[in-house]
Design a protein around this nucleic acid. Structure first.
Lengths: 189, 189
DNA sequence: GTCTATACGGCGATAGAC
DNA sequence: GTCTATCGCCGTATAGAC
């Protein structure tokens, strides 16, 4: 979905900056001047790569979706569904300090874009659909074919909720504690 | 915390509009003109009641905090801790359609203000502290004094996560399903 | 207390040189 | 493809009449 760029890395630098700033302070609060400064690309030049501010929002979604695809590929390298689920939770726990500072990279983006309206709101749905569908597949492979969706909902909700609480309280331990419990729960399934 | 207003209801109308707009489209996206229009109070007059835009954010937090205090009072009228916990979940389920449209009234505000920085970020912590502390009290009264905090974390995380998922997918049933499961879980504790 | 008019700055977006 | 300069609007905030 990301347009290839033959010549330079400017577009990539712009997207990186936009993703990082949206994560740290929210996309709506982030100005084009912010992105220009953080990326080192001059302000007027931004419009060579993006036709509008909304277009940058779309690029942020593209980047986060691609991120999950890379994670999925790594998880697929693990031997079984239980290992994949546990690895997913472990990865979230390792990221707890970032989550406490800025929220879940996907969840906080969904929350913001969901209220933004328009195309961004619509597209942000897909961000959660990826991970949740993947979780449901793993639960099904574990033999819980009939309630795979329920288990995925339960796991994803707990992780997202704990992430939001960790973010609000600025306390990574909330996510770590809940993650640890969830790993035990998965092992016992 | 809210300053009494002898003469009119203008301040209340402004706060109501600000709360509603922040819930529907986010506070950062909401302009003073939006609030002025929705409340019917002229734009220039807003600054008689609030000294700055940030001050309106504080008033929104005041209003949401007061809302929870009213809920707490109602829950305290119930006979026991189990009934209070279940009633809390039931209330969330009944609100599922709104949550699917705009998110959890408290959770979405925490998520936004948490990235806003400054005083609003600091204060938004208190929004979750109230409900979670109350939940922990109920679990303690149920006899789980040693793990009351863990159970409260678990319940609050599940509800918040399910609310976020319902919001993202625009599907109230996600919250209803998870809420139903949580009520069963509470009954079995 | 209430409202109108407006100043001021910042932000998204464009024009056009190189 | 890259960058400088700048426009026009919108949003916050203020001044001051009533």
């Amino acid at each position: 979905m990301v347009k290839p760029n033959k010549t330079g890395d400017k577009r990539k630098r712009l997207v990186d900056a936009a993703v990082s700033l949206a994560y740290r302070q929210g996309h709506r609060k982030t100005t084009l001047a912010d992105i220009s400064e953080e990326s080192g690309v001059p302000l007027g030049n931004v419009y060579y790569y993006f036709k509008s501010r909304d277009d940058i929002g779309n690029a942020i979604l593209d980047a986060r979706e691609a991120e999950f695809e890379r994670l999925r590929a790594r998880l697929d390298g693990l031997p079984g569904p239980r290992e994949r689920l546990i690895a997913f939770v472990s990865m979230t726990i390792r990221n707890a300090p970032n989550v406490a500072a800025h929220g879940c990279p996907m969840g906080s983006l969904c929350a913001e874009f969901s209220k933004e309206g328009g195309e961004l709101a619509t597209r942000s749905t897909a961000l959660f659909a990826g991970p949740m569908g993947y979780m449901a597949e793993q639960f099904a492979q574990l033999g819980h074919t009939d309630k795979a969706d329920e288990l995925a909902l339960q796991l994803q909700a707990s992780l997202q909720g704990a992430s939001l609480l960790a973010q609000s309280f600025r306390d990574p331990s909330l996510l770590e504690r809940e993650g640890k419990r969830l790993k035990g729960w998965i092992k016992g399934l």
